[in-house]
Structures are given as structure tokens and as C-alpha cells.
Design a protein around this nucleic acid. Sequence first.
DNA 1: ATTAATATTGAGACTCATTATCAAAATACC
DNA 2: GGTATTTTGATAATGAGTCTCAATATTAAT
Lengths: 142, 142
Amino acid sequence: MEEHEGLFRSYLDSRSLKMTRPRKIILEAVFAIHEHFDVDILYDRIRKKHRDVSRATIYRTLPLLVESGLIKQSLRCQAKDHYEHIFGHKQHLHFICNRCGRIFEVDSSGIEQDLRKLASGTGFRIEEINIEANGLCSDCGK
Amino acid sequence: MEEHEGLFRSYLDSRSLKMTRPRKIILEAVFAIHEHFDVDILYDRIRKKHRDVSRATIYRTLPLLVESGLIKQSLRCQAKDHYEHIFGHKQHLHFICNRCGRIFEVDSSGIEQDLRKLASGTGFRIEEINIEANGLCSDCGK
DNA sequence: ATTAATATTGAGACTCATTATCAAAATACC
DNA sequence: GGTATTTTGATAATGAGTCTCAATATTAAT
């Protein structure tokens, strides 16, 4: 059993929820994607292999994966919520090119540390950080 | 004529768009609000004084204000897009309390400077920055 | 295994923010 | 003032995300 599966399973247990077949399929599909994804992307990939996972169940399962700390909701793009892995991935921020639409991931550990320092000064307890910058990537900016 | 009105007017001119009565009303209302706002908040405030500005026109005008550099689209809250001023406001980031929903603005000039340094190293040309952290505010975190 | 108690599912109806449409009204330029 | 072009308000349409509910799956206990 892969590690993310074990983590998800213990999250489910702790809430007396069940590891069902659709949830397992969704979990595997999520961790087979190594970039950002939205529900449609995930749905299409799952449907190539399985006929029996509905959009509704995907919409229901993603918050569980977020709650369990395995993924997080990150940017919003084309009016859709996007998700990304936390488990097994470094902290990073996003540079989003306004022209070609590509999303670049950049290490953000230094900046996040500053941010946490800033927060602790105000008494705010950070649970999640999102940093993004829009602009022109090096290709489009020429 | 207030400065933001002049700026908006020259943006409209540059695109051969017209400064109409509804657009002027919306502009004034936007700059009479000194926090984040969404379309509903704006619509309610405008409607207290004017019967003749429709939601449709607000939805049409906000992108013009964004494009002209006076405001920007910031966070998304309760499934609604939110906007905030750029003109006349300092750079700041948002701490969003997951419990009470309050949004705290914190000066972000130091962090943004680091971010720009990081970007210039990668050749990315930043046009806009959004930094936010979710968690518990000092009241809710006790 | 069977059962019973509970959780979960798929399908589709529903919500609601946002966008598109279009005829009527306003605007700017001559 | 007339005319070409923009803009507007009202309303219909869109579409991501949520909710409902009867049918099904899961778990733990027998």
C-alpha cells in the first residue's frame, strides 16, 4: 500500500468514514497526476479506466483529501478551482504567465518563513499559504 | 475632478470608450469603499442612491477598472470574486480566518521585494502579486 | 456468512455567480 | 441636429459546484 493511501485511510478511520472503491480510484488518480488539476481533468483521466465514478463523488472526495492534508486547493483558473499535492511536494509558489497561461512552480521556503514570522507577530496562526504572481514568463516577455 | 476619475477617463479615451453616467457612478462607489468588495456589496451601495445602474453594467465595468490599473481582483470568498483598490493603497497581503471569516490586511512590501528578486532570477516579469494565508486569527485561535 | 446499522454512491435536479444577447437609449463627431 | 457607434438594462443562458434521494456498498457484530 502506498504511503498516501495509508494516510488517507487513517484520516477516514479517524472520522469513521470508509475507504470505498471510488475513493480509492480517485486517490490513485490524484497521485498519478503530477501537476495542478481541476475536476474536469481528473474526471477525464478516471473515466479512461473506470466507468463507475461520478462527478458528484469527485466533488465529494476532494474536500476529504484537502481535509486530510494530502492536497490543497490552490489557484483558480478559468473559473475553476484547481488542486495540487502537498504530500511529497516541496513548498512552492506560482508564477502564472498572462500570455501563454503556463504555470511555473518556484521554491518558496524562504518567503514562507518570512510570512510565518510576520504572522506570529500579529497572533495569526497560519494553516495554509498561497502565493502567486501573474505576469509574463521569460519566453513571452521578450 | 478626483485623480482616480482622471485616470479612468484617460484609460477610456485610450480605448475610445466613453465616460458615461453609470460608469462614473460605479467608479465613485468603488472609491467610496475602503475595503474589499464583491459585486453584491457594490450593487447594494449604489442602489441606495441610484435606481438606474444595473448589475450587468457593474459586471461590465469592473474589468475596465481592473484593466485601467485602478483596482485588482483579489481573493475569492464564498464563491464570489472580490476586488480591492490598487490606486492609493499600499501593497498588502491577506490573512483570512477560517473560523470567523474576517480578512486582515498586513503590509507586504518586504515580502514582495523578495518575491521580485526571486522572479528576476528566473526571467519572469511580475505584473501582479497575490499573497494570502488562511488560518486562525488571534481571537479564534485561543 | 447473514444481518443490521450506517455511510456512500450515481444520476440528475438545483443554485447562483457570471456572461451573453438584443432592442432601446445615450454619446461623440460631423 | 443627424448619424454612426457605444452603452445600457432586462433578461435569458451558461456552467461550476452543491444537494437530494432511492439504491447500493461497507463494516462490525452475530
